[in-house]
């Protein structure tokens, strides 16, 4: 479905060592524009290290990152952000004490020059925030409403809307649904679908197979710092994914006793 496109980001044989610990032992993943690429793996599989490498937090020990066909070396997250790689973190996306509009523009504040002074353009920030929130289906009391008053799903949606507004080409979502209820999860998955249809490449990290299958186009499973392969939608069953994530063995026995509900 995306064969005529070139991948927007290509990670080739990425290795990352922390001292004597090998967190990533040669992981390769490519992501195309407009697809939702799910990265699955159990705790400790290296998902977080991998996306941190993609978003410029870590420098890979070995391997190449190709972004829009060119090799990229990100010095820090700012570099990655300005190239168009945005990350929405599980818990660390929003600051509850600050207003929605201050959060929305955090790190990218609109600036209005008055003489030599650079002022925060609150009017612009408030208008844009209200508009973007309306598009995502969230009704705010006002742009000065604190993020702490929003639900978990709404916070994720604000974070995603923010990334899209600032021109993200690759959107990395780090377990956006893991702490959410059913209805909120549905909202976030619907948001992912909207974003993908705008032609943005989404990297969706999760350890929930059902969430992945609901929106994913392709699925890559990580286990102990290695890729266990990438599958297209429709080529793989939930059970197969589940088994790959868990490493295959114990899960089979467990599934039997739990009646396949995990």
């Amino acid at each position: 479905m995306t064969s005529e496109h070139a991948p927007i980001i290509e990670m080739r044989n990425i290795e990352k060592h922390f001292g004597s610990v090998i967190a990533l032992a040669g992981v390769s993943v490519d992501v195309f524009p407009g697809e939702c690429h799910c990265l699955l793996g159990d705790n400790g599989a290296g998902k977080s290290t991998f996306i941190k490498t993609m978003s410029g937090v870590h420098k890979p020990t070995a391997g190449e990152i190709m972004f829009e066909g060119k090799p990229m070396h990100f010095a820090d997250p700012r570099d990655a952000i300005s190239a168009g790689i945005a990350t929405v973190h599980q818990h660390l996306a929003m600051i509850p004490l600050m207003s929605v509009s201050r959060n929305f523009f955090m790190g990218n504040e609109p600036v209005k020059k008055v003489g030599p002074l650079k002022l925060f353009d609150h009017d612009y920030a408030n208008n844009v925030t209200m508009e973007e929130m309306r598009k995502m289906g969230i009704n705010l009391r006002g742009p000065d409403q604190a993020v702490g008053t929003l639900s978990g799903g709404e916070r994720q949606t604000v974070a995603i809307a923010r990334a899209v507004h600032f021109g993200a080409k690759v959107l990395i979502l780090d377990e956006p649904t893991s702490a959410l209820g059913v209805r909120q999860t549905a909202n976030v998955l619907a948001t992912i679908d909207k974003v993908r249809k705008q032609g943005i490449a989404v990297v969706f990290i999760t350890h929930n197979v059902r969430h992945a299958l609901a929106v994913g186009d392709r699925f890559t499973v990580l286990n102990r710092g290695k890729t266990l392969g990438t599958a297209q939608r429709g080529q793989i069953t939930p059970e197969e994914l589940q088994d790959m994530m868990a490493g295959g063995q114990e899960m089979v026995a467990l599934e039997g006793s739990l009646g396949g509900t995990v």
Partner: peptide, 21 residues
Amino acid sequence: TQFGNWIFAAGGDAEAARNSG
């Protein structure tokens, strides 16, 4: 000011603020 927003952000959640640049 922009810097003011950074002051709030740094104290509100340093990690989240760093992630946002």
